[in-house]
Structures are given as structure tokens and as C-alpha cells.
């Protein structure tokens, strides 16, 4: 079994330093604009910040993967090309991309830099992945969080590139790169602007008896009684009504986090090259705990020991965790 690469989130320069210190093999990050899928206020890097961060990461033996993984709308493509040019100049180790135009630009102009296919490209079959490998010499695919471990194993045997798969963090329900729910409600697009449920359009409204409604734009996403923890109003994690169901229900999924620590040995045996921790929008403390715990777990598995991970549950969303689609087809 090969030792897998632990790929960790770096939403800010300090989170990146923390991840490097905690034992990340690679960190992934983006610039402060629409060119990456976590374009949230207060996150991401300026060009000078990334320059310093790359030097620091490389000094610690950690690779830097730059996410340029949104879809530039016609007329704005230059912003994405600029991000690529800056990344190349600063010496990032790979670009993570989803758009065919952006992939082609990198393959043509920077053939020496590794290309990773983002989860946002939603490549779910060997044929789709082989297409990107053939056309753009993609070296690694980040698989959508919709496959079981046996399906991942089959995929690994059928494609000519490495596999990276999510192991921990926020669990988006829609196929990434194929969701415009946020744009429908807020006018900002996940694909084009890198935004999902933008904070500027979120409201928490308390009624007379202490119930708390969470709203996005003009719509109520959920309502919590006083003894519940109110979640952030992400559209695919809200509660809604429909005739076929008795009362409000999580129409898409409960607000749970992905935690695959117990499936770690299986994933590693399936031929996964890189294990990805989600959470560029999370705190430095989160990065420290999760990266440290997973570093230990991966090393334990490599040493033939049990990868017991305790303490991670407190970091999961709403303190509930799932193995999502990875464990069983019944999730679907």
C-alpha cells in the first residue's frame, strides 16, 4: 500500500501555516476572488500572501495546490488566466480546475505544472475522467462525494490518473459544479462567483416565543425551536414542506458532516492517492485538530494499526456525522 497524501484546507495564510505544522503533505488554497469555489469574505490569499505562503510550505516539504476551480462566464475569462499566471509565477505545485477552457489554457501554456481535475468538474465515470486526461494531461481527479468505496476501487483500476477523495468536512448534497440553487435565490452563482449561501444575504429572525428562523434572500431555509442549535442556512440542508411528507423535513439531507475515519484503511486499499479534508472556510483551530488527527490516523494505518480518531465529532457540523455515499448505496 502506498502512503497517501494528506491534502488540507488553507483558507488563510495562518491556516496554511497551521496545516503545514500539523503534518499536511499538501495544502490547497485560492485567490481572493471568483476564481475559486470558496470565494467567501475574509478568506483566501492576495498575490503577495501566496508568495510568502508557498515559500513557507515548500520549506516544510508541503506541496501547494491552487484552486482555480470555478467557471468563468464569457467576458471575464481574463481574471482566471491572471490567477493561473500568478500561480505559475509563484511556483504552485498543481492547479485544481473544473472549466474546460481554463484546463486548456494551463495545459497549453504551463505544461510543466500538474493539473488536477476539481470535484467541481463532476467527473463520475472512467470515460469522463479519461476524456480530461486525454485532452489536458490531467494527473489527478478529485472524485465527487457520491461513490461507494467499491465504486472508487473500480474507478482506480479504470483510469490513467491518481484519485483524490474527500474524507472529512462539510457534505454538499448536490453534485458539485452542477448546482445553481444559490444563484436562483440570491443572484450570486456558485459556479461563476464561487459563492454558496452568501453571508450578506443571510438573516436570523427570532419570533416572540424564541423560535429562530434562518433566511437566505427572500426565503426561509429552516426554523429552530429554542432548544435546537440553529444551522447556517444552506439551501440543500434546510427543512421544507411537501404533500407526500408529514410536516417539515430535510428534503435533501440533514446538516451532517462527512467523517470517513473508519473507512480510511478501505480507501487506502482501494488505491486512493490523496485524502482531502474539506474546510477552507473553517477556523485555524479546526484545521489544527483535524489535520493532526488525520495525520496520526494515516500513519497508524500505514503502520498496520487501528486508525481510532476521537475528538473529531465535536468539529462536525451540528455534532452529527455521516459516511454519506461512501458506505452504502442505500444513501442514494
Amino acid at each position: 500500500m502506498n502512503r497517501p497524501e494528506l491534502v488540507c484546507p488553507a483558507g488563510t495564510p495562518s491556516a496554511m501555516r497551521t496545516a503545514v505544522e500539523a503534518g499536511a503533505d499538501a495544502v490547497y488554497c485560492g485567490f481572493q476572488n471568483a476564481t475559486n469555489a470558496r470565494n467567501f469574505p475574509g478568506l483566501n490569499f492576495t498575490v503577495p500572501e501566496l508568495e510568502k505562503a508557498v515559500a513557507h510550505a515548500h520549506a516544510g516539504g508541503t506541496r501547494v495546490l491552487l484552486a482555480v476551480n470555478t467557471f468563468p462566464p464569457a467576458g471575464k475569462v481574463n481574471l482566471w488566466k491572471e490567477a493561473v499566471e500568478n500561480g505559475a509565477r509563484l511556483g504552485v505545485d498543481a492547479f485544481i480546475v473544473a472549466d474546460i477552457g481554463v484546463a486548456n489554457y494551463i495545459a497549453k501554456n504551463y505544461p510543466g505544472i500538474r493539473l488536477h481535475l476539481s470535484v467541481q468538474a463532476a467527473a463520475t465515470t472512467p470515460e469522463a475522467i479519461k476524456f480530461y486526461c486525454r485532452e489536458f494531461n490531467v494527473k489527478r481527479v478529485v472524485l465527487p462525494r457520491i461513490m461507494t468505496v467499491p465504486e472508487i476501487k473500480m474507478m482506480a483500476d479504470a483510469i490513467p490518473c491518481e484519485i483524490e477523495t474527500f474524507i472529512f468536512g462539510n457534505h454538499g448534497l448536490m453534485v458539485e459544479g452542477r448546482c445553481s440553487l444559490t444563484n436562483y435565490i440570491t443572484g450570486l452563482s456558485t459556479n461563476m462567483d464561487g459563492v454558496c449561501s452568501p453571508a450578506a444575504q443571510v438573516q436570523y429572525i427570532k419570533d416572540d416565543v424564541g423560535n429562530l428562523s434562518t433566511r437566505l434572500g427572500e426565503f426561509t431555509i429552516d426554523c429552530f425551536s429554542c432548544d435546537e442549535n440553529a444551522g447556517y442556512p444552506t439551501i440543500c440542508k434546510g427543512r421544507y414542506l411537501t404533500a407526500a411528507h408529514d410536516g417539515p423535513y430535510y428534503a435533501f439531507e440533514e446538516p451532517v458532516s462527512l467523517n470517513l475515519s473508519s473507512l480510511l484503511p478501505d480507501l487506502m486499499a482501494a488505491g486512493v492517492t490523496a485524502l482531502k479534508i474539506e474546510g477552507r472556510q473553517r477556523s485555524r483551530a479546526y484545521v489544527k485538530s483535524v489535520v493532526t488527527a488525520y495525520r496520526r490516523a494515516v500513519d497508524s494505518v500505514m503502520a498496520g494499526k487501528d486508525p481510532e480518531i476521537s475528538g473529531l465529532l465535536a468539529l462536525t457540523e451540528g455534532q452529527k456525522e455521516t459516511q454519506g455515499a461512501f458506505k452504502s448505496k442505500t444513501w442514494r
Binding site: 465527487p144 457520491i146 448534497l173 448536490m174 453534485v175 452542477r178 448546482c179 445553481s180 440553487l181 436562483y184 440543500c236 411537501t242 407526500a244 411528507h245 423535513y249 428534503a251 435533501f252 439531507e253 455515499a325 444513501w331 442514494r332
Partner: peptide, 15 residues
Amino acid sequence: ASLALSARCYHARAH
């Protein structure tokens, strides 16, 4: 307008 696709069937889930 088609807004999103998922691996999960939300019709089945509602029932």
C-alpha cells in the same frame, strides 16, 4: 429551470 443534480433521489426520500 434545472437548478441542481444529486446522486440521491429526493422523490424517493420524500416518500
